[in-house]
Structure formats: structure tokens, C-alpha cells
Computed example of a mutant assay.
Amino acid sequence: MGRRGYVYILASQKNGTLYVGVTSDLAGRLLQHQTGTGSKFVARYGVMRLVWFDEYDLVVDAVAREKVIKKWPRQWKINLIEERNPHWHDIRGICFDGRHFVALVLHRRLALPFRHGFPTLSTR
């Protein structure tokens, strides 16, 4: 069985600078960004607000999705964010307690069935 993967979008503020990334350890990668040891782009432009993420069973699928999203026009990325997070809240504190998922509550109810120790995001 392969590692799980995550595609995520960080923003500097609502409608601000965007960063699209991929990782197999979302909590760890966000910590790297926060401490300045992640992307130089993120550190330079202050893109620290987690506004969107999606989970994949395999990291290779997440990498493929990240490549697609990176090629999208900016407005498509904004639309993707605003489908789940219309106010561009930083969902990092909602999603993580230290290094563990706790909940993801946005403008609609989300079910978080656990598989392999992590929640699978799906709408009810």
C-alpha cells in the first residue's frame, strides 16, 4: 500500500497570493511553511493561510492533481477555494490539533470517516 497524499492551497489573504503544493504529510509540511523551512516562495510572500486541501489514497495521484491545478487560471483556483471556504478562513487550526486531524467544518457539513488513521473528506 502506498502513502496518502494531499494537495493544498495557501493564500496570503482573501484574493491574495496563492501557492499550490503537494505532500504526504500535510501537518508537517504546514509546520515547515510556518517556520520558514518550506518553500522560499511561501516565506518571501507570506503565503501562510491554508484555505483548501484535498486528500488522495496515493501520493502519486495527489502529485498528478497538483500539476493540473497549478496550470489552471487563477480564477479557477479561486472558485475551487470558495466552493468549500467562501470567506478564505485559515482552516489549519480547524483541521489540526498539533499533528492530528480533529475536524473540518466550513460552510457545509462534511463527513469524516476514518480510513488508515486519517479522515476521508466527503460531503453528506
Rank of each mutant, 00 (worst) to 15 (best):
residue 107 H to Q: 11
residue 99 R to K: 13
residue 15 N to M: 08
residue 108 R to N: 12
residue 105 V to E: 11
residue 60 V to Q: 10
residue 44 R to P: 01
residue 52 W to S: 05
residue 21 G to E: 01
residue 12 S to D: 10
residue 46 G to K: 05
residue 8 Y to S: 00
residue 92 R to F: 10
residue 27 A to G: 06
residue 80 L to H: 02
residue 36 G to Y: 03
residue 52 W to K: 06
residue 35 T to L: 12
residue 73 P to Q: 07
residue 65 R to L: 06
residue 49 R to A: 05
residue 90 D to T: 07
residue 87 H to S: 13
residue 101 F to K: 01
residue 96 F to S: 08
residue 11 A to H: 01
residue 93 G to I: 07
residue 37 T to L: 03
residue 78 I to S: 00
residue 15 N to R: 15
residue 26 L to R: 02
residue 46 G to V: 00
residue 55 E to P: 07
residue 32 Q to G: 03
residue 101 F to Q: 00
residue 62 A to S: 04
residue 51 V to M: 06
residue 54 D to L: 09
residue 4 R to T: 10
residue 55 E to F: 10
residue 32 Q to A: 06
residue 67 K to F: 09
residue 83 E to F: 13
residue 105 V to D: 12
residue 111 A to K: 11
residue 37 T to G: 00
residue 67 K to W: 09
residue 102 V to R: 15
residue 41 F to S: 11
residue 75 Q to M: 12
residue 49 R to E: 07
residue 115 R to F: 15
residue 87 H to G: 11
residue 2 G to M: 12
residue 99 R to L: 13
residue 57 D to Q: 13
residue 65 R to T: 09
residue 41 F to Y: 12
residue 47 V to H: 02
residue 50 L to D: 01
residue 73 P to V: 11
residue 115 R to A: 14
residue 116 H to I: 07
residue 12 S to K: 07
residue 27 A to N: 05
residue 71 K to I: 07
residue 11 A to V: 03
residue 76 W to P: 01
residue 5 G to K: 06
residue 1 M to C: 08
residue 33 H to C: 03
residue 28 G to W: 04
residue 50 L to M: 03
residue 117 G to T: 01
residue 62 A to D: 01
residue 124 R to N: 06
residue 70 K to Q: 12
residue 2 G to K: 14
residue 38 G to I: 02
residue 33 H to F: 04
residue 18 L to P: 00
residue 100 H to L: 10
residue 83 E to L: 14
residue 97 D to T: 14
